[in-house]
Design a protein around this nucleic acid. Structure first.
Lengths: 133, 133
DNA sequence: ATTGTAATCAACCAATTGGTTGACAAGAGG
DNA sequence: CCTCTTGTCAACCAATTGGTTGATTACAAT
């Protein structure tokens, strides 16, 4: 159960049952049994799912008598949206630049894609990347 | 390799190597060998990673001579952001309502959390949830 | 003290995952 | 025609995952 935080969050939400639990927890806190009720799996399986969500920081459990109400920690969503928006924006910026280039270029100069990386469209800036492995 | 589209996208991004590839593809298209270069795994492993990204719709390959340049399809990000934003907003809305309630409630009426689901803070609307499984 | 309820722990199992090596297909260029 | 480059396919392997059953912990209530 190693892995960086971002991987844990993405991985936790890669399961439909877990996503459904998150969706329901967005409406209100719930106990493990309440959460387990709609699914046709054992309570133990749901408990395991909750452990995954908890390890990802998406959920917290505050013990209260013998019940352990589960609470959604929605702020962790920011981790993902930040990552996604960063590269989405970068890709869009890239399209915009390519569009500009094609629009201002005389038709007879349009290249027939000599290689995959057209030097003009890729200024080779930003040597740093997201996560170096 | 079944699973719904959303699960595939989340799952594809749950791997650091795959996320790094997406990050680099946001800057420019690249061939499989170019992509494989920074990582100390075989080209075959990278090819497998690309298959996962392709199945998730995050990436497309257009064959071009014997090279197959890989291209990022950034629009698929919307699938995730839509899902995330929906429940993030719902959770925030819930906090807002709870804050309002506590602020307008006379101090001596504050309950000692009799059960996890306080009826006043959870109007029981919206019986439909994300994905019923 | 006994019983019941809520939840977790432990061991096991089948399927999936991320990696490997080795063989192969498809072009490009001599 | 041969060879090199680029990439995939196939079979295998260890580790992880999502599920099960059975036992156990921790309270509450009778």
């Amino acid at each position: 159960m190693a892995a960086d935080p971002l991987s844990r969050v993405f991985s936790a939400l890669a399961d439909p049952t877990r996503r459904d639990m998150v969706a329901r927890l967005a409406a209100s806190d719930a106990t493990v049994n309440e959460l387990a009720e709609p699914y046709d799996v054992t309570v133990q399986a749901v408990s395991k799912h909750l452990k995954v969500l908890e390890d990802a920081g998406l959920v917290s459990r505050t013990r209260e008598a013998q019940r352990r109400p589960v609470h959604l920690e929605a702020n962790v969503f920011d981790l993902m949206t930040k990552w996604i928006e960063r590269y989405r924006r970068q890709a869009e910026e890239r399209y915009r630049r390519l569009d500009d280039l094609l629009r201002t270029m005389p038709d007879e100069l349009l290249p027939t894609r000599p290689t995959a990386t057209a030097p003009e469209t890729e200024p080779e800036t930003e040597p740093e990347i997201g996560e170096p492995r």
